[in-house]
Design a protein around this nucleic acid. Sequence first.
DNA 1: CATAACAGTATCCTTTTCGACACTATGAGC
DNA 2: GCTCATAGTGTCGAAAAGGATACTGTTATG
Lengths: 127, 127
Amino acid sequence: MSRPRAKLTNTFPGCPVESTLSFIDGKWKGVILYHLMLAGTLRFNELRRRLPSVTQRMLTKQLRELEEAGLLSRTVFPVVPPRVDYALTPRGESLRPVIMALKAWGDENVLCDGDRMTLKPLENRSA
Amino acid sequence: MSRPRAKLTNTFPGCPVESTLSFIDGKWKGVILYHLMLAGTLRFNELRRRLPSVTQRMLTKQLRELEEAGLLSRTVFPVVPPRVDYALTPRGESLRPVIMALKAWGDENVLCDGDRMTLKPLENRSA
DNA sequence: CATAACAGTATCCTTTTCGACACTATGAGC
DNA sequence: GCTCATAGTGTCGAAAAGGATACTGTTATG
């Protein structure tokens, strides 16, 4: 498996886990998909505003990769100033349970305060 | 957010998604967790056998990172030959829904054949 | 005596990813 | 004529991740 993670694959139990990860891997793909799931359709700069610290170049790159993977569609309107809409494809939409599971775990387990990340105490669900 | 992905965090909607990803990020963490979820407890070499192409060094590294993140426990038995057991902590166990969502999506959407990965056609769930 | 199993380390090197920064084109508004 | 907004590209370099390979120490087994 000496391949970049983005092209990782192999036949072994657990492969489906890895191959799914390979789709949402990349520093921003998870959040991009999440925001598209909330908003439906977003323009380039709308996404930028929702991802305060990603650079233009990185956002473009991640969006292109997601498009290539078939998870989102890119619609260019030939107007000036340019307008480009991003939206989930059905395949991207099918990732909703995955993204929502990620979000749920984060909500329950991680505190995002300021710029560091702390684990919340475990809840005792048997009580 | 100019930080290694593994230490990524920030305050913005969607952060929980990213912070969860930061826990299972790393080329092998997903599968490791998955196998521990199936097996309960595994020794070092049992894991190696389940991850055919990971090197010893990488496996060690990923395991240490998972341990540091509080997702698994490492139990050393002072015997010869050495014996070390790896098992999920409650926190690691709490990732089960996430890992299973990843696996489910992979099962439904990806074909792992030989050494390349192909997308399955989308199923029409409304039919 | 040689070998194998266990659970690793150490060293070195390559690939990949990420980020900073500068640059493009067009038209509208002032 | 200058500036702004839009949606990008191009180039460069640093940092992180990952991989290859060799090595350690102990005991049981043949």
